[in-house]
Design a protein around this nucleic acid. Structure first.
Lengths: 189, 189
DNA sequence: TTTCGATGTCAACGCTTGTTGGCCTACAGT
DNA sequence: ACTGTAGGCCAACAAGCGTTGACATCGAAA
């Protein structure tokens, strides 16, 4: 049989440097202000290399915005701590990886990024919500409500940077927001 | 005394057409993709007129993003219906005027627009929250939490357009989101 | 009727953008 | 030692951008 994992190419370091610089720029500046030239400069290579490895700016963004929410299995969480678990997880995920911030910023202006955001929350979040056994007829709606509060928190804290939201400690945020998600997940209309 | 209200200029119709087109474009495309040329074409005038009347693209945006939330006096609202009142008001305001959508989209990528968003919520929302007599030490934080849910709702419904959030009827949204805001406003940590 | 400022058009500027193709260089296989 | 190929750089392209200044036209005041 042929080797399934292609052996490391000499250019892998460059590819990774480009991707890292791209995520930083997309997260800080959004899709249109993050120029290929600036990204290439950050990665200390020529702009044409970006084209060679990722085809186009859109291709680069698609690669840079690849993301897995790594949501925990909600069926294994005590039913009354679903909200708390989710907020904690999201906060940790946002703070530790700027990919989500890049995606969020870009989703405001770039149709492709918005589509990606929809897929991310439709596939991963809705799937996780469906996983703990609620009425299938309401899961999509519950997931949407959770998304509205979650993305709103990210938007005000990491994008617009509203001072009171930025200054709140993660634990305080958990305390306030967890009951909201809990009700969206398990409450009745 | 001199006349305080300058009499209508002949160009007022043009100015208004530019502003209307600008709001549409900024709301639909964001700051950088909304070009002066496209706005001028929508308003059926020459791009140079935009410069003459608004100085620069930034000046045009500043004029187009002028906005008053028109928040009601919360002191006159029954204390147990604060959340409901706010959601209803916000939904009506979002749906009726695309200025807020323009500001929201632009705030993701344009630093000036983000600053404007901060001012809007610091001045108008925090002021309204302070107006119904809560502990002054917690008003900023409560307003921030309200902003996180409110902007998150707007972001998912009007910008990213997550299907489940788009499809929910305003009344259903009120029913779900009102208790959240109510707790952020009057609940204890 | 003349005049003059306000209103509007036209063509061009300098700059930045994504993208392309040619060329040089280094290294792995023979 | 030779050669082919992958990695990398350079210079340039066409297109689009915000912005500018010169010129035409209209409408009201003199």
């Amino acid at each position: 049989m042929t080797e399934t994992a292609p052996r490391a190419r000499r250019s892998d370091a460059t590819r990774a440097a480009i991707l890292r610089a791209a995520r930083e720029r997309f997260a800080a500046d959004g899709y249109e202000r993050a120029t290929i030239r600036a990204i290439a400069a950050d990665a200390r290579i020529d702009p044409s290399m970006v084209m060679r490895y990722y085809g186009s700016k859109e291709g680069l963004f698609a690669a840079a915005a690849e993301f897995d929410l790594r949501l925990p299995d909600l069926a294994a969480v005590p039913p009354d701590r679903l909200g708390e678990t989710l907020v904690r997880h999201f906060l940790a995920r946002w703070e530790g990886d700027e990919t989500l911030a890049a995606l969020l910023r870009a989703a405001s202006t770039n149709p492709g990024a918005a589509e990606r955001m929809r897929l991310l929350f439709a596939d991963q979040l809705a799937a996780a919500v469906a996983g703990f056994g609620t009425d299938p007829a309401t899961t999509a709606r519950r997931a949407g409500l959770v998304a509205s509060q979650t993305l709103g928190l990210a938007f005000t804290r990491y994008i617009v940077r509203l001072p009171p939201v930025v200054e709140m400690a993660p634990e305080d945020l958990v305390e306030w927001v967890a009951p909201t998600l809990q009700r969206y997940l398990t409450g009745r209309p």
